[in-house]
């Protein structure tokens, strides 16, 4: 059986673009770096990498990419965002710059830098039960947290908590996937493999 190779874009304005691109190409996917609207045509899916979300948001606007990215999501293509990517995919943002725009798409409220400063960044093994992945080393770097989810959103992972807050760190809504941690910084490609299965 011959199947057509899928093509995934990685938004390449700023951040750890190379790490996502490597994980995807190791999975046999063709990778395109996206810097302008025309780069989005003929893509099967898109990854929004980790980076500085305020910077990426400004660069999206300066490259006239905001509307094309929203259209890409409306077309129900698969999109995955890690850390800054989660922030950019959220419908509601807390603790961002007052003028910070997100692409939106996932019905969640996300708090930026929710754990504190870099000295509070950490790594921890977590289980992603709903998608059948256990013992995943999650790397949180000045990471965001999901504080509220809408009815269409499935919670894939949350950190163990004693308090009332839910500490949600991975969600899915249809073909849209977001993690507040960085699987691309580990050698473990199971989350990317799951994302590729959504294409």
């Amino acid at each position: 059986m011959v199947t057509k190779t899928k093509t995934v874009g990685v938004l390449a304005l700023q951040g750890d673009v190379r790490e996502h691109a490597k994980m995807l190409s190791d999975l046999g996917v063709a990778v395109t770096l996206v810097k302008k609207a025309t780069d989005l045509s003929s893509l099967d899916g898109l990854v929004i990498p980790g980076g500085e979300s305020t910077t990426i948001s400004m660069l999206i606007n300066r490259a006239n990419l905001m509307q094309p990215l929203r259209d890409f999501i409306k077309a129900e293509k698969a999109v995955y965002g890690s850390c800054a990517g989660m922030i950019l995919l959220s419908d509601q943002l807390l603790d961002g710059r007052t003028d910070q725009e997100t692409i939106g798409g996932i019905d969640i409220t996300v708090r930026r830098n929710a754990f504190g400063r870099q000295v509070d960044s950490f790594e921890k093994e977590i289980d992603l039960g709903p998608i059948g992945i256990s013992k995943f080393m999650a790397v949180f770097i000045r990471a965001p947290l999901v504080e509220k989810v809408g009815g269409q959103v499935e919670i894939i992972a949350a950190l163990p908590n004693t308090a009332q807050d839910s500490r949600i760190v991975m969600v899915q809504q249809g073909n849209l996937l977001a993690t507040s941690f960085h699987p691309e910084l580990t050698g473990d490609n199971r989350i990317h493999k799951y994302f590729v299965s959504l294409l």
Binding site: L13, D16, E19, G50, G51, C83, I141, L185, T186
Partner: peptide
């Protein structure tokens, strides 16, 4: 906290900036 991956990873997020 403070693992080599967390420290080096922070710099990875600054790339292209």
């Amino acid at each position: 906290t403070g693992t080599s991956r967390v420290k080096r990873g922070m710099a990875e997020m600054l790339k292209g900036g």
